[in-house]
């Protein structure tokens, strides 16, 4: 059998494989290749940028939980000039498509940062972070509210020709409404999930344990929640989905794709096991070969009722 096809296309962005990273979980200070060549993945999503300098939240910012990470970093950001002078030249040298994640406190700030990113001619797409759980302003103001999300995406859509991806918050009540409204407003794809809000309280002091008090939960612990939400959104919209939330290995990649994701992001696991993504790519390829799946796109949505189950040959141990 010829090598299986790993190429996927999302919002017109051609990826040589469906693997990517969650914004903010891979690379720092413009350095993206500490453990493996960044070109291993299908598309790079660097950390969210703002159009102004921002210190982020006070420490402690990270705390371990059972199979997860409780964090409240708050998207620290250097100046736009610093981004252009230091990060962009490095991004320009990379030989893969890059989707830049952006955030603002207001609709106008989002539009401004999108226009600035567009003008650099470096990016293949823009991800609107509508879902950072750790901010007092911006992000969730849009991510929880279908009307604000609609207005924002529509406004951004009118200002850039780049594909626009909306990164959604894992909110049970508003999720489907927001997904449908960003689709109606012209978003080209959805990215989900951002980390849900969470809290840890010290049983001795009886006070929240991280500096911002409220934080996020990410990592293996949230995977079933994320898979479920991708499954629901896949049924509700036509636009493709970048799925993420607790991915650890190639089995999780298949799980997210079966739920409906066309590409899958590695997040917190990059901190724990920085070689997880390249290893999963090899194992995914082998899985497709061993199961006679010619095209990785066949996995997308395969968990839904109208799709046949794979008859697993007995020799295969996944």
């Amino acid at each position: 059998m010829p090598a299986p096809n790993l190429r996927v296309t999302i919002a017109g962005i051609e990826m040589k494989n469906p693997l990517t990273v969650g914004s903010g979980t891979y690379g720092h200070h413009g350095n993206f290749s500490q453990f493996f060549p960044v070109e291993t993945m299908g598309v790079l999503v660097p950390k969210t940028v703002r159009n102004y300098k921002w210190p982020g939240n006070p420490g402690p910012r990270v705390l371990e939980t059972t199979a997860g990470l409780h964090s409240s970093v708050g998207i620290p950001c250097n100046t736009w000039e610093h981004f252009v002078a230091h990060d962009v030249p490095i991004l320009k040298t990379l030989k893969l498509p890059i989707i830049q994640s952006v955030i603002g406190r207001t609709e106008d700030e989002y539009v401004e940062i999108v226009e600035r990113c567009d003008s650099l001619n470096v990016f293949a797409g823009i991800e609107l972070n509508l879902s950072c759980p750790n901010l007092k302003q911006g992000g969730l103001d849009f991510g929880y509210d279908p009307d604000s999300a609609y207005k924002l995406v529509r406004h951004v859509r009118s200002k850039t020709r780049l594909p626009v991806i909306a990164k959604l918050a894992p909110d049970y009540t508003s999720l489907l409404k927001v997904a449908k409204s960003v689709e109606a407003a012209g978003a080209d794809a959805i990215s989900m999930i951002n980390a849900p809000r969470a809290m840890c309280i010290d049983h001795v002091t009886r006070k929240p344990m991280i500096g911002n008090k409220i934080g996020a939960l990410s990592g293996a612990a949230i995977k079933p929640l994320a898979v479920y939400m991708v499954w629901e959104v896949y049924r509700a919209v036509q636009i493709p989905i970048f799925g993420m939330g607790g991915v650890t290995d190639f089995r999780d990649v298949i799980e997210f794709m079966a739920a409906g994701a066309r590409a899958v992001g590695f997040g917190t696991i990059n901190y724990v096991d920085p070689m997880a993504l390249p290893r999963a790519l090899g194992e995914l390829t082998r899985f497709l070969e061993e199961n006679g799946i010619a095209d990785v796109n066949e996995l997308v949505g395969s968990a839904h009722e109208d799709r046949p189950a794979l008859v697993v040959p007995e020799r295969v141990v996944a």
Binding site: G24, T25, Y26, G27, H28, H29, N31, Q34, G56, G59, P60, R61, V62, L63, E64, L69, S71, V73, P76, T268, N270, Y271, V272, P274
Partner: peptide
């Protein structure tokens, strides 16, 4: 307290 130890998480 650290998550990555190599500068990526800003934690």
């Amino acid at each position: 307290h650290m998550a990555c130890g190599f500068g990526d998480c800003h934690g």
